[in-house]
Simulated scan of single mutants.
Amino acid sequence: MLDRDWVYFRINPHDMTYVTRILEGFEYVGVVTALDGKKGIGFVRTTPDTAPMAVDILGHLPFSVDILSFDEAMAGSNGDGQ
């Protein structure tokens, strides 16, 4: 089941592994999962304390990252939200 409070994002699909590796380096921030890898939609499983940090990290990457709401992520992916 997906959590509405996790951090959802869209990037170029080619950059998904890079995002995963960067966030792995910040071990306590969260775990990256591709929701729809072909569309570059993913999310970071965060806690309420680490979600702002995940958004900040994503915002400082050297390529375009769109932060999405839960509903935007579900609408743009093959995810069912369950």
Rank of each mutant, 00 (worst) to 15 (best):
L23I: 05
I11T: 07
F26R: 11
V19D: 05
G42R: 07
W6N: 05
M74E: 02
E27Q: 14
A73K: 05
L23T: 01
A34K: 13
V65Q: 06
G59D: 11
M16G: 10
D80A: 09
E24V: 04
K39D: 03
I11G: 02
R21E: 14
K38A: 15
E24F: 12
F70H: 00
E72R: 00
V7D: 00
N12E: 15
I67M: 06
H14M: 13
R4K: 14
N12K: 13
R21Q: 15
I67S: 00
M53L: 14
L68R: 10
L35F: 12
V31N: 09
A75M: 09
T50Q: 07
I67C: 03
V44N: 04
N78I: 11
I67D: 01
W6V: 03
G40Y: 09
L23Y: 04
F70L: 01
H14W: 13
I67R: 04
T46V: 06
V19W: 08
T50H: 09
G76L: 01
V7W: 01
V7Y: 03
D49S: 12
R45V: 08
R45M: 11
P62L: 07
I22M: 12
D5S: 08
D56V: 10
E24I: 10
S64R: 11
T17M: 14
K38T: 13
V55K: 01
D66E: 14
R45Q: 11
S77Q: 03
D3S: 08
I22R: 06
D5C: 02
I22P: 00
